[in-house]
Design a binder for these strands. Structure first.
Lengths: 371, 371
DNA sequence: CTTAGCACTCGCGGCTGTCGAGTGCTAACT
DNA sequence: AGTTAGCACTCGACAGCCGCGAGTGCTAAG
C-alpha cells in the first residue's frame, strides 16, 4: 500500500526530524500541524506518518507516543532533505582568529580544532594528528648534552615533526663530539624513511658509504626504535574533547530522558569508554582517510555494536600526498546534522590550509625526485 | 554525657568506616556485631554509635538507617586509627617495571603516573608536571631550517625541558647563518632565567657584551615570549586520568546509590567538570607543594563548595631545590584512605627518584655558584 | 555498664486509579 | 480518492496507599 515517498511525505519527514532534533521528544501529529502551520488536519498527518513508518523512516516505541526517526530516516534526511549550510561569517572569523593565535604549533592546532568542534556542535569531537603519507621521512638529528652521561636527542622529520628523547650513555662524550656525531648521522640518514634506515642497517658493513663509530651505531638503533614507536602510536592515537558538551545533551540527563535514568547513565558511561579507548572509532578512521568530503555514519549503520546509539561526522584534512588526518564530531543519532557537517567541513578545510602553508612551503626547497 | 572517645568507641568508629568504605551502604549495629564478632550486644553498640554521633564522627540521614561517617570521622580515622600500609612488593615491582619501559620520557612518566594511580586506587588521579624551582633556566637554542622562510626553534632548558616552536621569517637565512645565530644566542643567554633575559633586553645597547643583529634580537623576543607562555601554562596545567575508574564507584551508579539516580548523575557531571577545569583543585596545589608527606583533604574541609563530596590525597614529588610537582588521587569521601595514601606515597617517591637521576646527574656538571 | 525487649520511624517495592497525550480507525464529507 | 471529524483505545506518568523489613532509641531489668 501507500505509493512510496511522495513530496508531502518528504516534507513531513523533514519536519519530524527537525522537530525531534530540536526537542528530543517524540513528535506528535498535532504538534506538527500547529507549529509549522500545515494546511491539513492532524488526522491527515497521522496517515502520512503511518505511511512513513511503513516505509521504515520512522518508529514508535508504543501506540500513543509520537514518532521518532529511524537510522534510515536520518540517512534519507542527510542525503536528500537537508539543505547544505555553512557557518556564519562571524563564526568563521572567530574561529580563524583563534587559530591565528596559536600559529606555529601543530599540537595546539589539534587541541584547538577539538575544542572548537565540540563547542560549536555541542557534541564530543575527535581529531587524529596528521599522519605523514607513506612514511615518516628523517631530516636531521641534534644531540644536546644535558650532562656527561645524559643526552637529549631531538629528531626532526620532514614536515616540522619533532620527537625528543633523553638517552643515557655509558661513557662520557664532549659536546663537540656529540655535535660531530649528530652531523654525520644527519647526513647519513637525510631524507630516509623508516624502511630505508632499516635497510641501511642490515646492509653489509663493507658496503656502507660511511663508517660509523660504535657510538653512532648505537644512536642509530635508538633513532630507529623511536621512529617505529612514533609511527605506531601516531596511527592509533585519537585525541578527543568535548565530553562535557556532549553530556549536556538531553540523552544524558536522566530527568529529561524519555526512558529511564538508568539508561541515561549507562549511555554516559559507554560514551566515556568509546572516547577514552577509541574502540568503535578506529575502523572509521581509515575509511575517512580514504574518501573525500564529509562522511556521516549514523547509528548502527556501520560501526561496532556499542556505537548503535551514536552518529559520527568525519572528514579528512591535510595536504594531498603529504599528510592527512581525520577530524570530526560524535554524538547521539539525534544530532543537528547540517550544523555538524558544516562545522566539520569548515574546520577540516581550515586545518588543511594551515598545513598546506607548512608543507607547500617546505616542498619548494626539497629536491624533487622527478626532475 | 558520654566520656569522650574511649578505646572501644575508637575501635567501633574504625569498624564503621571500614565497613562503609567497603560496602557503600550505611552500617547497622547488628551488622558490626555479626561481622566482626564483637563480644557485646547490638544494643551496646548502638549506645556507642549514638555517642560517636554526638561527638560528631558519625551521622545518619534519618532514624532507622545505619550510620555513616562524617568528614570529622574520616579525619580522625586518617589521623589516629588507620594503620600505615605500603603497597605489596609485587605491586611495587610491576609499577617500577612499567616506569622502566618508558625511561627517558618525562611526558610519559606523567601519563603513566596518572594511569597507575587511577588503576590501583580505582579513583581519578591528577598530576602536575614538575615545575622548575624558582624559574626556568635557559640552556641552549637550536634553529633548524624547515624551509627558507620557516624555522623550527628548539629551546632547551636546564633539566631536560624542551619547548619547540615553528617561526616564520621575513627574509631567507641559510642553515649556516641560523647555526651561527643560534650559537651566539645560546652563549649570550646561557644559564639565564626569564627575568635575567628581560633585564638583558632592556639594558642600554652600549652596555651589551655582545652586538646582536636585527634578526637575532627578534629571535630573542620570541624566545622571551615562549618562556613567559611556558612558565605560565606550566603553572596551571593539571593532567588527570582515571575518570572511568572513579565512575565505577557505587556513588556514581544510580542503581546502587542510596539516594536517587538524579543525584548520582549530577555528581558525575560535577566530577567531570572538576577534573576538566581544575577549578576547586587549584588551591590545593600550592598547599601540597609547600608541605612534606602526603596531604589528605576530606570533603568540605578545605576546598571549594563543589568539592564537598570529594576527598583528595596529594603529595609533592621532585628534587629538593630543583623541581617539584604534585600528584594524587581524587574520589568520593568514602575512599580507601590507607590504600590511596600508600599508593600516592609510593608513586611520588618513585617519580622523585626518577627525577633525581636526571637532576643530580645534571647538577654535577653545572657550575656551582658557591665554589 | 550491659542487655533484652519493644515501640517507633522510614525507605522501598508493589499495587491501584486517574489523567492526559496521542494514535488508529471508521464513517462521513468534498 | 483524498481529507477530515470523532471517538475508542493504549500507554506512560504520577500520586497515593499499604505493608514489610531494617534499624534505631528508649526503658527497665540484670
Amino acid at each position: 500500500m501507500s505509493a512510496g515517498l511522495t513530496e508531502r511525505r518528504q516534507v513531513i519527514l523533514k519536519l519530524v526530524i527537525q522537530e525531534f532534533v530540536e526537542t528530543a521528544t517524540p513528535v506528535a501529529s498535532e504538534t506538527l500541524v500547529r507549529k509549522y502551520r500545515l494546511n491539513v488536519s492532524s488526522a491527515t498527518v497521522r496517515n502520512e506518518l503511518a505511511a512513513l513508518e511503513e516505509l521504515g523512516y520512522l518508529t514508535h516505541l508504543h501506540t500513543s507516543a509520537g514518532r521518532v526517526p529511524t537510522d534510515a530516516g536520518y540517512r534519507f534526511f542527510v542525503e536528500n532533505l537537508m539543505e547544505r549550510t555553512t557557518l556564519s561569517l562571524a563564526e568563521q572569523r572567530t574561529i580563524r582568529h583563534q587559530f591565528y593565535q596559536v600559529r606555529g604549533e601543530l599540537d595546539q592546532w589539534i587541541q584547538l580544532a577539538g575544542a572548537v568542534l565540540a563547542r560549536t556542535t555541542q557534541n564530543a569531537s575527535l581529531v587524529t594528528p596528521p599522519r605523514v603519507a607513506e612514511r615518516l621521512r628523517f631530516r636531521s638529528l641534534e644531540l644536546i648534552g644535558i650532562h656527561e652521561l645524559m643526552v637529549l636527542a631531538v629528531l626532526v622529520f620532514h614536515g616540522g615533526i619533532v620527537k625528543q628523547q633523553t638517552i643515557a650513555l655509558d661513557t662520557a662524550r664532549s659536546q663537540e663530539e656529540l655535535r660531530r656525531s649528530a652531523a654525520r648521522l644527519s647526513d647519513y640518514l637525510a631524507d630516509q624513511t623508516l624502511s630505508g634506515i632499516e635497510e641501511l642497517l642490515t646492509r653489509d658493513p663493507g658496503q656502507q658509504p660511511l663508517q660509523l663509530s660504535e657510538f653512532e651505531r648505537s644512536m642509530l638503533e635508538l633513532i630507529l626504535r623511536a621512529m617505529q614507536l612514533f609511527e605506531e602510536q601516531a596511527r592509533e592515537q585519537i585525541y578527543s574533547d568535548g565530553l562535557l558538551e556532549m553530556l549536556s545533551q538531553p540523552e544524558f540527563i536522566p530527568a529529561l530522558a524519555r526512558d529511564d535514568a538508568e539508561r541515561a547513565v549507562q549511555r554516559l558511561r559507554r560514551a566515556l569508554e568509546i572516547l577514552k579507548s577509541g574502540r568503535g572509532l578506529e575502523p572509521l578512521i581509515p575509511q575517512a582517510l580514504a574518501s573525500d568530503g564529509v562522511q556521516v555514519i549514523i547509528g548502527g549503520e556501520n560501526s561496532a555494536d556499542e556505537m548503535r546509539e551514536y552518529s559520527v561526522v568525519l572528514a579528512r584534512y591535510g595536504v594531498e600526498n603529504a599528510v592527512a588526518g581525520v577530524l570530526g564530531v560524535i554524538g547521539p543519532t539525534r544530532m543537528a546534522y547540517p550544523r555538524s557537517i558544516s562545522t566539520v567541513r569548515y574546520i577540516s578545510s581550515l586545518m588543511s590550509n594551515l598545513l598546506a602553508e607548512l608543507y607547500n612551503a617546505e616542498s619548494r626547497d626539497q629536491p624533487n625526485p622527478d626532475q
